[in-house]
Design a protein around this nucleic acid. Structure first.
Length: 928
RNA sequence: GGGGAAGUGGCGGAAUUGGCAUACGCGCAUGACUUAGGAUCAUGUGGUUCACACCUUGCGGGUUCGAGUCCCGCCUUCCCCA
């Protein structure tokens, strides 16, 4: 046995290379088999694969492998979402071209990914920064532009006046550029948009999707559909101001109006007397981000414009203010303020002493606008509302509310307003003032109008010879060769220098996997007809609203532009219903995994001594000793290290009380087990369970663990140690259980010599256990419960280990038992399963075998324990035949001594029989 | 403030439709083998108790023969939105 010890490194290397040579995971269209398109989110090539990638990908791989063994022809591709800011930052900071940086990272990550032993079909790999890829990203843009789904519009951007560049939201922290600390202002700029709201309604329909409920709720909230009315107000001088309101029933309570500081009318209507104040306020508002401006509970600010509007329902003259809590890009950028029935308007009115008029009187209360302490945004009866006095207003929204319903009709009859639906969702701003993205394929003509680059000229390639400025400004704006071109009429023109949002690249990548080298279009309809749509998509829940909504929008737009026509024809020619494609949904089933967090680690316990103190809080130590246990008496400071920065150590001396120790340069540092004098930086501090990050020093490097235990063990541990959908802290000790399991399997299969003839009863027990395991593993993998799948296999191991000790299973039965066990393990730990499969003399490859069939008869127990409950408490267990019927169970129950004792000679009030089902044992509930 | 998810041993976590709570694993304890053990093997391990027995799924109620699971009210944590 010593000459056949489990050596994961050699086993894994051997099979990975064999699989690659044999193209075992090459997936090809085969209409004779059912297809399964399993997709897992593609990574950003940041440089190193981390444990989170393993956590996301290897369980998904296990399930893809399982589906393959179930007889599906499985497509499980991988690629790289390769455009984006980090590459550009690397270029600026370290003077490496983004392309070089990105491709070397991809190279490295691809190599690391191969060590997972996943069934990725690498011949389908895509990288979104490849011109062969972004040619089609640009092609999509062009098609959307031509279909009027792309347009130029105004948007508020984070503008750095010092850098003269636009920043992404995540680059702005506290109103400053997170990299340079320079101030950032809000500014309107003309940008490219997609008509995202076009599909808002359709994207609210999840009826055909198997997606997690929380994701559906988040998307619904994100889209934020509201019903109400648009109402037309006018200034005294006749300028129209349109407002959107969800509460037209409160129109009579509109005692002032508020415009967003960016509203187009502000300049025009402001009176001379107010001009200075208004201009100052507009400038001030630009300094806050939208999130800050709309934060609830924030002190309201605003300025009167000096102008008045006429409320169209009652001809009342009301003042027009500007305030930053009104956003230009929501609704119309102007609101009618109804302070009595809206909290923000109320806070504003009270602050500036504006009139508050109650128009919805709640039942049993008598609100007074002058004295009410807070707004009443709920139901009641309409008052002070002209013809509508007495109309009940409910809590219902839109037309379902009788008050809103009646007012909308009335407004429409009079031409003052009309019913309207509004979405919180804004159109999708895709312009980025960046180099490392797909250039927007548009040409700006001399007259300022735009035309698309002709299809034959795609892709518009990024020039290589660019210089990256420390300002972060896009080098495309300064690159004459890129910039200057001619339009379709041969006139000099300039190129658009904005590139596309990287979400655009990741909104269609699963189509490119179908045929990464196809040149006639983004995807080959022959491939698409077979593989589409994606059957299972796995990835992090952090993409709930952005990526997944973009992906849905994109697919719907593609459908409506006829991009699936040919694909559907081919589907039909093969007798497949194209209905799934007509849905315009990219992924039918979605599952999210959680996140692996850093491991909790105790800090070193130390006793620090020294002569010099600063107060009694801080010690300058000339001796620090790490101890097993804190001594009861000591000089100096003793406790657990919670933090260390250079030579300053923070120590928890108990109950969270902290002391500081400054370790002097020549101090003696003693760490047991370490030869001689240790260094200060070898002292370990306490680590909480938290997200992994380099700065916290709690990053788990999968390569290290693979080197130590092998990929199969790391895969199995990631599946076993967590609730996959939830995630949790890494546990470097917990992996031991998986190490033992894998080793046990190896030793059992390679080392156990069964007798030629076995004992029929023992063999029956093993067979039963195998079939019970088949059921558990199958069900678990179906439901993405990877932890219970591994647990079931460990349970089988326990049973078989006992059996090998007893030596009662014969050679033939043992071989069959092992065969089935290896098949069940194959998706989870593909290498060791393949190796042992080969050692057992079975034909290559285990991954092309059929999944073991579950036989309920073989899994069934002969006898079971009848659980007897008396008044709900378990009081007895009686061994009975597994197929016991109710009458027999009653008889057995009544014969039980425990029941007899409880009955004390009397009769039970009630006997409730719960038959055995789903692996559970039968129960009898006795009510005394 | 609104929405969502979750709270089960020392720890990670199991538990179809309400039906033996704590599967599987870590850790721990005892023993065996060993020059040694951070290897391996065996046994045990929710709590209180000598035991019988009782208690136990964040807290408090309720429905039910029976509640981790359903209902009502709280508390705590995390995530998203504002």
């Amino acid at each position: 046995m010593t000459d056949n010890k489990y050596n994961p490194q050699s086993v894994e290397a051997k099979w990975q290379s064999r699989w690659e040579t044999d193209k075992l995971y090459r997936s090809r269209v085969d209409w004779s088999k059912p297809k399964h398109y399993a997709l897992t989110m593609l990574p950003y090539p940041s440089g190193d694969l981390h444990i989170g990638h393993w956590y996301a990908m290897t369980p998904s791989d296990a399930r893809a492998r399982y589906m393959r063994m179930r007889g599906y022809n499985v497509l499980f591709p991988m690629g790289f979402d390769a455009f984006g800011l980090p590459a550009e930052n690397a270029a600026i900071q370290r003077n490496i071209h983004p392309m070089k940086w990105t491709y070397s990272n991809i190279e490295r990550m691809r190599r690391q990914m191969r060590s997972m032993g996943a069934m990725f079909d690498w011949e389908r790999e895509v990288a979104s920064c490849d011109p062969d890829y972004y040619k089609w990203t640009q092609w999509f843009f062009k098609r959307f532009y031509e279909a009027n789904l792309a347009y130029r519009g105004e948007a508020m951007v984070n503008w750095s006046p010092t850098l003269q560049t636009v920043l992404a939201n995540e680059q702005v922290i506290d109103g400053k550029d997170e990299r340079t600390g320079q101030p950032v202002i809000q500014k309107m700029m003309t940008q490219w948009f997609f008509r995202y709201t076009r599909y808002a309604d359709e994207m609210l329909d999840f009826s055909q999707l198997d997606w997690p409920e929380p994701i559906r709720i988040m998307q619904t909230n994100w889209i934020g559909k509201s019903e109400g009315a648009r109402v037309f107000f006018h200034t005294e001088r006749g300028d129209a101001i349109e407002v959107y309101t969800t509460r037209p029933d409160t129109l009579w309570g509109a005692t002032f109006m508020v415009l967003s500081p960016e509203h187009g009318l502000v300049k025009k209507i402001t009176t001379d007397a107010q001009r200075a104040a208004v201009e100052a306020y507009v400038a001030q508002a630009a300094r806050f981000t939208e999130i800050e401006r709309t934060a609830e509970g924030r002190e309201k600010t605003g300025v009167f414009t000096g102008a008045y509007a006429i409320n169209p329902v009652n001809e009342e003259r009301i003042p027009i203010w500007i305030a930053d809590y009104v956003m230009i890009n929501y609704g119309t950028g102007a609101i009618m303020a109804v302070p009595a029935h809206d909290e923000r308007d109320f806070a504003f009115a009270r602050k500036f002493g504006l009139k508050v008029r109650v128009v919805i009187q709640p039942e049993g209360q008598s609100l007074d606008g002058d004295t009410m302490p807070e707004a009443w945004p709920h139901e009641g009866v309409m008052v002070n509302s002209g013809p509508f006095n007495g109309t009940p207003a409910t809590r219902e929204k839109g037309r379902k509310n009788p008050a809103i319903n009646a007012v909308i009709d009335w407004l429409q009859e009079r031409g003052i307003g009309r019913e309207a639906i509004n979405y919180r969702l804004r159109d999708w701003l895709i312009s980025r003032q960046r180099y490392w993205g797909a250039p927007i394929p548009m040409i700006r003509k001399q007259d300022g109008s735009y035309e698309p680059v002709p299809e034959s000229a795609l892709p518009v390639e990024l020039p290589d010879d660019v210089e990256f400025l420390p300002t972060g400004q896009s080098p495309l704006q300064l690159h004459a060769g890129f910039l200057n071109t001619t339009d379709s009429a041969g006139q000099p023109a300039t190129r658009e220098t904005d590139t596309m949002d990287t979400f655009m690249c990741s909104s269609w990548y699963w189509f490119r996997y179908l045929s990464p080298n196809y040149t006639q279009g983004p995807f080959d309809p022959e491939e698409a007809a077979y593989w589409l749509p994606v059957d299972v998509y796995t990835g992090g829940a952090e993409h709930a609203t952005m990526h997944l909504l973009y992906a849905r929008w994109f697919t719907k737009a593609m459908r409506d532009l006829g991009m699936f026509e040919e694909t559907m024809d081919i589907m039909q020619a093969h007798g497949r219903d194209p209905q799934e494609l007509m849905l315009g949904e990219p992924m039918l089933k979605l599952r999210n995994q959680g996140q692996v967090l850093g491991e909790e680690r105790k800090g070193h316990l130390i006793v620090a001594t020294g002569n010099r103190w600063e107060g009694d809080q801080k010690l300058f130590a000339n001796r620090v000793e790490v101890v097993e246990e804190l001594p009861e008496e000591h000089e100096g400071i003793a406790g657990e290290i919670v933090k260390r920065t250079e030579n300053i150590v923070t120590v928890n001396i108990g109950d969270g009380e902290l002391r500081t120790v400054e370790v002097l340069p020549d101090a003696e540092v003693i760490i047991p087990g370490m030869e001689g004098k240790a260094r200060v930086d070898q002292l370990k501090h306490h680590l909480d369970i938290q997200r992994m990050s380099k700065s916290k020093g709690n990053v788990v490097n999968p390569d290290d663990w693979v080197a130590k235990y092998g990929a199969d063990t790391v895969r199995a541990y990631l599946m076993f140690g967590f609730d996959w959908q939830k995630g949790g802290p890494w546990d470097s000790k917990g992996i031991q259980g998986v190490v033992r399991w894998i080793n046990d399997v190896w030793d059992m299969v390679t080392g156990y010599v069964p007798p030629a003839e076995g004992d029929a009863e023992a063999e029956r027990v093993a067979e039963r256990r195998v079939h019970q395991t088949i059921k558990k593993v199958t069900d678990s993998l179906e439901q993405f419960s990877f932890n219970t799948a591994v647990a079931a296999l460990m349970g089988l191991r326990n049973e078989l280990k006992t059996a090998t000790r007893e030596g009662r299973i014969g050679a033939a039965a043992w071989r069959e038992t092992v065969r089935q066990m290896l098949l069940l393990m194959a998706p989870i730990s593909p290498h060791i399963s393949e190796e042992l499969w080969a050692q057992q003399g079975h034909p290559y490859s285990i991954h092309q075998q059929e999944w073991p069939g579950y036989d309920a008869a073989k899994a069934a127990e002969d006898t079971v324990m009848l659980v007897v409950q008396i008044n709900g408490k378990v009081r007895d267990r009686i061994e009975v035949p597994a197929d016991i019927d109710e009458a027999a169970a009653r008889e057995a129950t009544l014969a039980s001594a425990a029941v007899q004792k409880a009955l004390n000679g009397g009769q039970p009030k009630k006997l409730i029989f719960i038959p055995a089902r789903g692996g559970q044992e039968p129960k009898m509930s006795v009510v005394v």
